[in-house]
Nucleic acid binder design. Structure first.
Lengths: 334, 334
DNA sequence: TAGTAAAATGAATACGTAAACAAAAATTTA
DNA sequence: TAAATTTTTGTTTACGTATTCATTTTACTA
């Protein structure tokens, strides 16, 4: 690989001048500028970004710790994050959540220098939080947040839970099952609390028969759904904690010959793009904005990084986006 | 950030000794070893990977240039690639194809030093190929390949095209439409050629009425499918160039009130995981192996990187994996 | 045209690590 | 116990770039 020194001696100038041509061309004489540029061309020179990073102390790369892509929510956020970052000159190092074991990934992230970290998959009481804090690198949580707050962009999960439940109740449903994931995740916790509160407001009993916690795997969702459908007091509606869960539920139901929403209503949360693509049109609750949480989060993170570089200051980003109902066709009046 | 020098002076040794503790601890006296390790702990020392990369000339990171994630095929390959690389100590920098404009991404990839490149989204005559070659970095193509060959892992697209077509013909279909993407991609070209050959073997006419080229967007697929269904000589089967296309087609059909396979049979290619998850079970053709092409490709690529590091040798990886029919329930005898 | 200001260039150094080589300390051998 | 090994540690340099500071060249002023 050819270095700036090679270019320098080829062009008959010092390495400093070559560096200047790259970083402050206005400070170099037109004639030598051309001479050096030509040398660069002829030697097919590429500045070594590693060496640059070493001296600049920035890598222009960001680590993304994402939930699994079989959840369409993360398909959208990952796409947004990668593309936006690229447009801003940043690279994204992608890592996938490993069954809640964020510490191992943390080691990984740590060992490659990054200018920032963006993560969706943190638990409400995740010990990784304080490790990340020690790092003194901007990090942004999206989707889920941590008890210590920090920087985050989330939807108003509690409101989402309320809206979805209210919608079902408006449609006359009285026997509703909540089918979600671990309440150690702030998303599920908020949505569940919203469900419970509205249920209580309408004097509905929320007992163990109405609450199902899955590990969000297809397998488990199928089993739980199967169990729900085989009960004598079969519910008339299922409130799925995420669209991903809702889609698995509906796939299962259709496979088994049930009709949605004729036999049972299903509502999700997240408003993933896929919910409009599908052969069924999923009723769901999602953020008001056109965009997604990943997009908002990466914008804010890059702002933070730039702010820090320019002024060495830092401020908190704590954003809870309001939600609304996307009333489509997997719920109906009974 | 604390450096190895800081650790050195804190522990009362030279920086070299600190370096040795990290890279060849067996060469350092037990007592000083402990002393240095303690110092590292107390100062919360982390070796700077940038500086390491500069001297080692390896970054342990790989650039992935992938097709878009709304195609489930790339969801699977990306997941496999990221996870496998991580297990082998590599980071993945993800980039998404930008409407065939690989050159802009190429600049990006180039500017961050990587040990290897893995890309799915190359055109058969893509000019980026010779640029990549100049780079003198191992690069591996999967899914699609380039006319110049290089390193690639693909399925036997031609065979896949034949198998799918043969399957439909076995089911008595005589009016089959091929609905695929640009033939500038080796995948579509191979599958199309297979379709045409078998069709001809059975004396079936393959004219413009049977060939539809989409840009693989949902929008375009919907339009083309709509057009196909509104024709007087409506086909009895659609051969979709990929599962992704097949899924869009079926979603459209079901939305419009058609039944699959009762009203029309649909077959895809790729055998994506999702094709089994869905409310319909997609009939498809895919590679024989349990795994996916991305997985195979990343394994080979890392082998290449290691081989190159160890022996400074290089060899070609050129693999065409055989395919088979996955006969599920979106095709039927007529 | 001498003197001064401005523009252009170069020499030296820093970033944090690894490694070649040299030197010192500990151990073994005779 | 002195010489010869072996083990352990340190000094120095390289990796490729950016930057500070000093120096040279050019342009301008009176």
């Amino acid at each position: 690989m050819t270095s700036s020194k090679d270019v320098a001696s080829y062009a008959g100038v010092s390495q400093t001048t070559v560096s200047r041509v790259l970083n402050s061309p206005e400070k170099v004489n037109q004639k030598t500028l051309n001479k050096v540029k030509r040398a660069m061309e002829e030697l097919n020179y590429r500045p070594n970004s590693i060496a640059r990073s070493l001296v600049n102390k920035k890598t222009r790369s960001i680590a993304l710790l994402s939930g699994p892509l079989h959840n369409p929510f993360f398909v959208e956020t990952t796409t947004s994050i990668v593309n936006y970052a690229k447009a801003k000159g940043f690279n994204i190092n992608v890592h996938f959540e490993n069954f809640g074991d964020n510490m191992s990934i943390y080691e990984d992230v740590l060992n490659h220098q990054v200018d920032g970290i963006i993560l969706s998959s943190i638990l409400y009481e995740d010990p990784v939080y304080k490790e990340l804090q020690k790092l003194d690198i901007p990090f942004m949580m999206f989707n889920r947040k941590h008890r210590e707050k920090g920087n985050y962009v989330e939807m108003d999960n509690f409101q989402a839970g309320r809206l979805a439940t209210q919608h079902l109740i408006n449609l006359n449903h009285k026997n509703i099952v909540w089918l979600g994931g671990p309440l150690t995740m702030s998303t599920f916790k908020g949505r569940y609390d919203g469900f419970k509160q509205v249920s209580n407001e309408y004097g509905m009993d929320v007992n163990d028969n109405h609450i199902f916690i899955t590990d969000t795997s297809k397998q488990d969702i199928f089993e739980k759904t199967s169990h729900i459908m085989s009960r004598k007091h079969r519910p008339t509606a299922i409130f799925a904690g995420t669209d991903s869960i809702a889609i698995y539920v509906i796939d299962f139901l259709i496979q088994k010959g049930y009709r949605v929403p004729e036999d049972i209503s299903v509502i999700g949360v997240d408003n993933v793009e896929l919910s409009r693509h599908h052969s069924f049109q999923l009723t769901t609750v999602g953020i008001i904005d056109e965009t997604n949480l990943g997009q908002i989060a990466i914008e804010k993170l890059i702002d933070l990084i730039n702010l820090r570089e320019a002024y060495n200051t830092s401020e908190f980003v704590q954003e809870t986006v309001k939600t609304k109902l996307y009333n489509r066709s997997t719920t109906k009046l009974i």
